[in-house]
Design a protein around this nucleic acid. Structure first.
Length: 119
DNA sequence: ATAGTGACTGAAC
DNA sequence: GGTTCAGCCACTA
């Protein structure tokens, strides 16, 4: 692995990236979440920007549904970074309707990581 | 070690 | 209501 990023010896858990991926993996199909929600769940709170950056590094990971992560407006801000199947198509495959790069009924489909913990 | 950057967010106008 | 400004943390150069 890398030196700074995946260094179990150095960190309790893995890097911030790993945590982000872990949370994203918890997002159920057909639901979406936001960068801010993930960041808040991780405790950093204001590092929402970096959540997306972490997802950028998760491209090689097939089990990280980065397409379920949108910004707080429900806008597919990171769709430009998807190669191959577009973000909206992946969402549409899960039953999430997307119109004009925006998740329809985003408020209803929104999934908060803390929800998973309560259950 | 300093500076720059990013798939963002909340407050202010 | 939308647009603008500034803060934000972790990583790379």
């Amino acid at each position: 692995m890398k030196k700074t990023q995946f260094h179990p010896d150095n960190l309790d858990k893995y890097s911030f990236f790993e945590k982000v991926w872990d949370v994203v993996r918890l997002v159920p199909p057909g639901r979406v979440t936001t960068y801010g929600a993930i960041a808040r769940f991780l405790g950093t709170g204001h590092s929402a920007r970096y959540v997306g950056y972490a997802l950028n590094a998760s491209h090689q990971l097939p089990d990280v549904p980065a397409h379920r992560v949108v910004n707080r407006n429900g806008l597919l801000s990171g769709k430009h970074h998807f190669h191959g199947l577009s973000m909206e198509e992946r969402l549409a495959c899960e039953g999430v309707e997307v119109k004009e790069d925006r998740v329809v009924r985003f408020k209803e489909l929104f999934w908060d990581p803390s929800e998973a913990l309560q259950f």
